[in-house]
């Protein structure tokens, strides 16, 4: 018989000796940077009600949440995401405070992950920031700049912040009357850049040629910025889409002016991560490392669902992945 008393469950692990020290030092660097920009560190409970994550729109995959039963039969969830509880906290406590609030966190995230080869797939650490109450390009630039500085601060040299626009796609989809299943298929093909199959599926739809063209074009909107913006304006079928691109262009240009051009890339086919994002979305990749180490974006509709209508943008760094990528010395100095 297996001696369970001597094993740890799948997807979690111990951290000791030098590994712990490395992680601790990385976290201290990030915390200091966040503090320097006046982000106040906060903490939310390790478990909360399932309804918190279940009732709101654009939440995480329910199957991935690790659930517990409370003594009164209510279902609890181990924190599957850092942002949703912070949005709840802000809505409950800061409605009468200064509208602009800056928060940071370093916290464990728990998910039922399928990737059983990864020893940290079910408990991992995220460090991040959330900026509430500021709309517009200024806040977007502040957050993306901080994302870039965070990676620089911990010693990453070669990395890319890939920027997309969730609303550009959402506003297009609103114009298209399709069964949810067919739309999900198309969304997945766009996300996978499966050009051949996307073309086939889209061509079979009974919708305007203009809409078809827009759907086929979205995954190709990456690479050289001028060209991406030019072609994005071309396929914009309403003012909202045009506005979103105009806004994105302004943010991009401000980041370039700050000297960050070498770290930036654009991809308007980046649409599929957490659905609560509403406007600018971005992810950070380190050269030679297979998965994103940073995810972020604007989520202007999230606090509204907790009864407080305010703007919000933030990002989270996957600390364990970041350290793994630095250990491989890939993308590092």
């Amino acid at each position: 018989m297996e001696k369970l008393s001597q094993l740890v469950p799948k997807g979690v692990n111990d951290l000791h000796g030098e590994d712990f020290e490395v992680k601790e030092q990385t976290i201290i660097k990030l915390k200091n940077l966040f503090k320097q920009y006046e982000y106040k560190q906060i903490q939310t409970p390790v478990f909360e009600y399932y309804d918190l994550f279940n009732k709101i729109e654009g939440t995480l995959n329910k199957d991935q949440m690790i659930k517990l039963i409370d003594t009164d039969g209510k279902i609890l969830v181990l924190r599957p995401d850092a942002t949703i509880p912070i949005a709840r906290m802000v809505a409950q406590n800061y409605q009468n405070a200064d509208p602009v609030q800056r928060f940071s966190y370093v916290t464990s995230i728990f998910r039922m992950n399928e990737d059983l080869q990864n020893i940290q797939s079910r408990e991992f650490t995220q460090a991040g920031v959330e900026l509430f109450g500021k709309n517009g390009g200024e806040a977007d630039v502040e957050i993306i700049s901080l994302a870039i500085e965070s990676l620089q601060e911990v010693g990453v040299v070669n990395f890319t912040i890939d920027i997309g626009q969730a609303n550009f796609f959402k506003k297009l989809v609103e114009q298209i009357d399709l069964p949810k299943e067919a739309m999900n298929d198309i969304q997945r093909l766009i996300e996978d850049k499966n050009f051949a199959q996307l073309k086939k599926n889209v061509n079979e739809l009974a919708i305007d040629e203009e809409l078809k063209n827009a759907l086929r074009t979205i995954p190709t909107l990456y690479g050289e910025p001028e060209e991406v913006f030019r072609r994005a304006f071309q396929i914009a079928i309403n003012n909202e889409m045009t506005d979103e691109i105009r806004h994105l262009k302004a943010v991009y240009e401000k980041l370039v002016a700050k000297g960050y051009e070498q770290y930036l890339s654009l991809d308007l086919g980046l649409i599929n991560h957490l659905n609560y994002y509403t406007c600018i979305v971005f992810q950070g990749f380190i050269t030679g490392y297979g998965s994103p180490v940073l995810l972020g974006g604007r989520y202007d509709n999230l606090t509204k669902q907790f009864g407080y209508d305010t703007k919000a943008i933030g990002f989270a760094i996957y600390v364990d992945r970041l350290i793994e990528s630095l250990n491989g010395n890939k993308g590092g100095a």
Binding site: N158, F159, T160, D162, K193, Y222, G223, S265, D267, F285, I286, T287, G288, Y289, G290, S291, P292, G331
Partner: peptide, 15 residues
Amino acid sequence: IVNKASFKTKNQRIN
């Protein structure tokens, strides 16, 4: 098939 990170970080050559 292309690794998403490679596509983003070695973009020009891979493209």
